[in-house]
């Protein structure tokens, strides 16, 4: 059971490319293949993973593992998920150490950086469409942006403040 859980999440860590939500189709497959959790439970899992702190993909793995076989399951699934990243990134980082000052790498990043900024903007816009739904939300967002831009406090403080304001204004 534990080795199956580990292997399945190792596979997800190896083949899921990109943001946290890309693990979702893999988890649907798991709900089909095993009786670990139902697809209905999976929908709840997504809601939880999105609304608790931490990267969504990691939250999904921990919760799915917990559903399957308790606390140990949560640990095993999370470990399985991150192990491929750990191995692959360490290998890439070793290679990068050698070539990071090369002309080729600089040219590569010269082109990739603008694309990545576009992708982040796209992600921000997607979330923005869901969250900035009325003039209230938009004005609060602009006020926060002003504060963030001109009074440079740690983002953690703004995030906490956002939570408090959300409760105070019943957003």
């Amino acid at each position: 059971m534990m080795s199956a859980l580990f292997l399945e999440f190792f596979k997800i860590g190896l083949f899921a490319l990109g943001g946290g939500m890309v693990t979702v189709p893999f988890l649907f497959e798991l709900s089909d293949k095993y009786s670990w959790f139902s697809s209905q439970e999976l929908v709840d899992m997504i809601a939880i993973a999105e609304s608790s702190p931490g990267p969504i993909g990691v939250n999904m793995a921990t919760y799915a593992g917990f559903k399957t076989s308790g606390i140990l399951g949560g640990l095993v699934a999370t470990f399985g998920l991150v192990l491929p990243s750990l191995i692959i990134i360490i290998l890439i980082a070793k290679v990068l150490e050698k070539y990071k000052d090369s002309d080729f790498f600089k040219r590569l990043m010269y082109a990739i950086h603008p694309a990545v900024i576009a992708l982040i903007l796209n992600a921000g816009t997607e979330i923005g469409k869901l969250v900035l739904i009325n003039t209230w939300a938009i004005s609060i967002c602009i006020l926060f942006w002003g504060a963030i831009h001109f009074i440079k406090l740690h983002p953690i403080l703004y995030i906490i403040l956002g939570g408090i304001i959300g409760i105070a204004l019943k957003l």
Partner: peptide, 14 residues
Amino acid sequence: HAFNGIRIVVIALI
């Protein structure tokens, strides 16, 4: 409510 507030801040930060 707290999460709705936090999401607005996250967008401003991004």
